[in-house]
Amino acid sequence: MHKQRHRKRYNLIWKKESKSQKDIEKPFANTLEESDSNPALPSSCMITKSTTPVFTNRLIVFLMTMLSSAGQANYSSASTASMRYDLMFTYQRLSVEIGLYAKDGVDLMIKNGWLEELFQVPEPSNQKK
């Protein structure tokens, strides 16, 4: 139950962060549309009303953290590739906000013991010298 509370708090932070980004997304989307570019679809178009948990807290936090990290990389890449200074600042701001959220996810995984060490190749017992 304790881990469930932390995951819910993490989701609430994401919800709050998403709402704050909507203030940025509308003018940002308008700017892109004025330039004949299509803005991305919002993720809210895929939400259901089901209250039955389908995935574990561990998987949800992991996926949200990894997707946030990928989003941060996309914003950073877009910032460096953009030739428009008006968009660069917005990309960088979004990148920082998403990066901080992803860090919170990693901290939550560490706190709950969900972050595992990657597989490592064992060292040979008889190394040649």
Rank of each mutant, 00 (worst) to 15 (best):
S44C: 07
T90A: 03
Q4D: 12
P124D: 12
N30G: 05
T52N: 09
Q127C: 11
Q72N: 06
K16H: 05
D107E: 08
S82V: 03
G105W: 02
S95D: 06
D86C: 07
M1I: 10
I60V: 14
R9T: 07
M66E: 08
S77E: 14
L94Y: 03
K19T: 10
S125L: 10
S43T: 11
L41Y: 00
I13M: 09
M46A: 13
A40D: 14
F89P: 02
K129C: 08
S50N: 12
P124G: 08
N38V: 01
V54P: 00
N74A: 13
I98G: 01
P27E: 12
M46Q: 10
V61H: 01
Y101T: 00
A29W: 03
G113W: 01
L100V: 02
S18G: 13
P27F: 06
A29S: 15
I13N: 10
G105D: 04
S18H: 11
I47F: 07
D23Q: 08
S125P: 02
F55T: 03
E123N: 11
M88I: 10
Y91T: 00
N112G: 02
E117F: 04
M64N: 13
S79F: 07
S35T: 01
S43R: 09
S44R: 02
Q92W: 09
S82W: 04
S44E: 15
S50V: 02
K49E: 15
M1G: 14
L32P: 03
R7K: 12
M46V: 10
K22F: 13
S69G: 12
P53T: 09
A29L: 06
K26L: 08
A78L: 12
R58E: 12
W114D: 04
E116T: 04
S18I: 00
K128A: 11
S69Y: 06
T90F: 06
P39G: 08
P53A: 06
K8Q: 13
S37V: 05
K19S: 11
E97N: 06
S77Y: 12
